[in-house]
Nucleic acid binder design. Structure first.
Length: 856
RNA sequence: GGAAGUUUAGCUCAGCUGGGAGAGCGCUUGCCUUACAAGCAAGUGGUCAUAGGUUCGAGUCCUAUAACUUCCACCA
């Protein structure tokens, strides 16, 4: 067991500990009216692939909160699940089928859906087993999936409610079309990428003479769809051209020159070709001028018959050929280099084609209002606060949400078209037309945007629309933890759908963390090959090291870097804890341990207990503020510095004395308390060590430590801090003058009342401490004057003393300057002025004694 | 074009409501001191991006500037 094991070896116990938790159902949540509920709904990872390091951080943060609250006596539910990610999954499935020489059409919708489910199950299982490896204490028995029956029921209910309220409508509008995915995508799913391209200046001849004008375009292949050329009405150059007609090159169609404010007369040539079928702005112009809409690119990105000889070929591939042809006809004025941003599908990275299609939309104006309000009035808080601006700005300017997707993966839209009477109706299950009773109906072919089901996730997982005990007890949930990158995609949707469907905000607090970048600060990506597999890390360093490395330097809303250095550091810390525990355990076996009795404690014991007590309040406060990185740093500093470097070193003295049982008891007490504080961060290691102390119960279900006023030993705490300073001074001093740490020295002091002799000797490696005044060198501390006996005076000693004197002199002049300043005396707080005066006095005394010390 | 964030030691980052610059890693020196060399002790290292301002006092508040990052919008 631990005592026989030289070093921390997480592989030897992690799986066993997890089994133990599982066997005791330690993760399971029940509706328990005797306890306060605390609930976190896990953001569902996409089933497109295994979990990555970002999920590891996201989950670690949630697990820390859940485990802390569980120990603090809340009934905690951490609700896990996964998301079907329609577009992304369909993309991967189609890719997979292509490798097998099939297409989705060739196997048909039914078989395709079967394939999809096999995929969902495979990755859902993979992700959950990864989460278990990382120690995430979610209630896996409640695993949900955005396509399972409960989620489907919620989706149908929500859709029908919105439809009946008139908040869902169908419209023929300009939408973002991904020719590669063969589907519309929402505004949020379009990613603008800066691309180097050209601006082609094309000549358009007049209909009635040989003259021409020049328009500039970045998309020459759309010219077949031109229905006008627009100029700004205020543009004097072209005023007399308005109303004249031009001929579209290559297709020889006659189009008018119109005037419209939309045109910027200073951009390009001040003339814009209007292609309403493939540009949202052009469409607006066309509407104003009652122009025809000519579609030249179809759903596959292929040119239509309108493109004449180019029809049937991919529009993007034909660009150069079209330009060549124009060149041949001397219709190209010039070609400029030009870089502009082009919309791309965020999944498949192909260029988006704006296209007029018929889609279903959710009307946003009414839904957005309460979602804005709840953040403004503080009902819903966003951490870090800076993101509230983004959130509000987004919702205040939101456009209607396109929710239909031309895919087979996802929830099929519950809309039916009666073939007999033309009625359009919605229903949870296929049913005869409610208007004419006909059974001749068809369901809409499209599926819903994945985010439609994700938007319902905080309550669909709890059983909504049914009035389940879970809904009553756990909803609204307490906190949502996710990356700031999906604040606008997802968080906003959950809020307005939550308020619309349940009348309540879905969660009170939102924590937004940053992205995990690689050690050099680069985004992790497949193309760079710098991605890190969490399971590989768990295998190499252990789950707890992974967790600590991920969150230690994290601050909310900021990207963080991650790599070997941090992992090694985290593992070193756990190894330190391991060895400290071994030390405590060995001594506990040898000397036993009891309840602490205050009258048996000396100043050093009180010091560590008081420090521990402070730690409890700091950690608790920081976790409540979601300063998770600060909280873990507090704990690490306490364990490594206060407990290991000082307290354990101090008590090595006591363990050889009749105080052995007393300090052994303090050691056990401090260790167990700190294990509890650390448990949410490093669950495996702490649980394992705790079990080594022969506990029947689980650490993860133990009571969380609370600040205890009785353990506040302010005086002793300060005194020992001074004592530690003294030891540091002596070590520093002897080091500077070249007496090695291993070499025994004799310390002298004039402080007859000094009681901590044995500790001082042990920690400075002194042979003896003798009472004697007027040493060659004096070390001043508030505890007294100490010196080191030398056989010879050394030059370094003189130098050192000189340096010290200079330092004190500097301090004196600083204090004097400050105290001479009338403004400071008048306006600074009294306590500060008094403290400064005291400091001055003390330093003057110190200087005197130093000047008195002689170096021969 | 609009907005937000960042800028502190060689590197990664802390620094709460303004009151003497911090940690870890790295580096230097000395140590296997019977829990731990994944360790111990000591040390080196910063005009807190720049310029102004408010204040008795500014890393901290205000105003500009610069660099980097991100989000939003997008003019053909």
């Amino acid at each position: 067991m631990m005592k026989d094991q030289k070093a921390f070896d997480p592989k030897s116990f992690e799986d066993k500990i997890f089994e133990k938790w599982t066997r005791q159902n330690a993760f399971s949540a029940k509706v328990n009216p005797n306890k306060k509920p605390y609930c976190i709904i896990m953001p569902p990872p996409n089933v497109t692939s295994a979990a990555h390091i970002g999920h590891a951080m996201d989950g670690t943060l949630q697990d820390i909160l859940i485990r802390t609250k569980r120990m603090q006596g809340y009934e905690t539910l951490w609700q896990p699940g996964t998301d079907h990610a329609a577009i992304a999954t369909e993309y991967k499935l189609v890719e997979k089928l292509a490798k097998e020489g099939k297409t989705k059409e060739s196997i048909g919708r039914e078989r395709f859906e079967k394939e999809a489910w096999a995929w969902y199950d495979k990755y859902g299982d993979t992700i959950m087993s990864q989460f278990k490896k990382m120690g995430f204490s979610a209630d896996y028995s409640r695993y949900k999936f955005t396509m399972d029956s409960t989620s489907t029921d919620a989706v149908l209910e929500a859709f029908i409610r919105l439809f009946n309220k008139g908040l869902v409508y169908r419209g023929k509008r300009m939408t973002n079309w991904c020719p590669n995915c063969g589907s519309a995508v929402s505004d949020e799913e379009v990613e603008y990428i800066e691309e180097k391209s050209h601006m082609w200046h094309i000549r358009y001849k007049f209909a009635d003479n040989d003259g021409y004008i020049v328009v500039a375009t970045t998309r020459p292949e759309t010219l077949f769809g031109d229905v006008a050329v627009a100029v700004n009405p205020k543009d004097k150059r072209y005023k007399n051209l308005i109303g004249k007609y031009l001929i579209v090159p290559l297709v020889n169609r006659k189009i008018p020159i119109v005037a419209d404010d939309y045109v910027d007369k200073d951009f390009g040539t001040g003339m814009v070709k209007i292609t309403p079928a493939h540009d949202p702005n052009d469409l607006e112009v066309a509407k104003r001028h009652d122009l025809e809409i000519i579609s030249v690119i179809d759903k596959f990105g292929v040119l239509t018959v309108q493109a004449g000889e180019f029809a049937g070929k991919k529009a993007i591939d034909m660009r150069d050929e079209i330009v060549e042809k124009l060149k041949g006809q001397k219709l190209i004025e010039k070609i400029e280099d030009y870089s502009h941003s082009v919309g791309h599908c965020y999944r498949c990275k192909q260029a988006i084609e704006p296209m007029i299609t018929e889609q279903w939309f959710v009307k946003m104006s009414d839904l957005a209002k309460p979602a804005i309000e709840c953040v403004k009035n503080g009902q819903l808080k966003i951490f870090a606060k800076k993101f509230e601006k983004n959130y509000l700005h987004w919702l205040e300017n939101i456009q209607d949400w396109c929710i239909s997707r031309q895919l087979w993966t996802g929830h099929r839209i519950p809309i039916y078209y009666c073939q007999s009477c033309g009625n359009i109706y919605t229903s949870k299950k296929p049913c005869n037309c409610p208007k004419c009773g006909s059974n001749n109906y068809v369901q809409d072919e499209d599926v819903l945007d994945t985010w439609f089901s994700s938007a319902l996730w905080p309550f669909s997982t709890l059983g909504w629309p049914n009035d389940t005990p879970e809904m009553k007890y756990f909803y609204p949930t307490n906190v949502l933890v996710t990356g700031y990158d999906i604040l606008l995609f997802w968080v906003t949707k959950m809020v307005y759908m939550g308020i619309e469907c349940t009348g309540k905000v879905p969660f009170y607090n939102t924590i937004l963390h940053g992205l995990v970048r690689d050690e050099r600060g680069r985004k992790m990506s497949k193309s760079l090959g710098n991605g890190i597999d969490p399971l590989v890390v768990v295998n190499d360093y252990g789950a707890d090291a992974l967790r600590i490395a991920l969150i230690k330097d994290m601050s909310l809303g900021m990207d963080s870097r991650f790599g070997e250095t941090k992992l090694e550091n985290a593992r070193a810390f756990l190894n330190k804890l391991w060895n400290a525990s071994k030390f405590v355990s060995l001594n506990a076996d040898k000397f036993g341990y009891t309840e602490l009795k205050p009258d048996q404690l000396n100043d050093i014991d009180k010091w560590i207990l008081s420090k521990l007590n402070n730690l409890i309040s700091n950690v608790t406060r920081n976790i409540d503020k979601y300063d998770i990185g600060v909280a873990i740093s507090n704990i690490i500093n306490f364990i490594w510095n206060d407990f290991c470097d000082w307290y354990i070193e101090f008590v090595k003295v006591d363990l050889k004395s009749d105080r052995a049982t007393i300090v052994s008891s303090v050691l056990v007490n401090v260790l167990e308390t700190v294990l509890k504080l650390l448990h949410p961060f490093a669950p495996f290691t702490t649980e394992f060590i705790y079990q080594e102390f022969c506990h029947e119960d689980l650490l993860m279900l133990a009571d969380y430590p609370v600040f205890d006023n009785k353990l506040k030993y302010k005086k002793e705490e300060l005194f020992i801090e001074k004592f530690i300073e003294l030891i540091r001074n002596i070590r520093n001093y002897r080091n500077k003058i070249g007496i090695q740490q291993t070499e025994k020295i004799i310390i002298t002091t004039s402080n007859q009342n000094f009681k901590l002799v044995e500790y001082l000797k042990k920690l400075t490696n002194a042979k003896d401490l003798i009472y004697e005044k007027n040493e060659k060198l004096e070390i001043i501390s508030e505890i007294g004057m100490f010196g080191i006996k030398f056989e010879e005076t050394k030059n370094e000693a003189k130098k050192k003393l000189y340096e010290e004197i200079e330092k004190v002199k500097h301090e004196i002049s600083r204090s004097e300057g400050l105290l001479k300043n009338p403004g400071f005396i008048a306006k600074a707080p009294k306590t500060l002025v008094d403290a400064e005066k005291k400091k001055l006095e003390k330093n003057k005394e110190l200087l005197n004694s130093m000047m008195g010390a002689k170096c021969e």
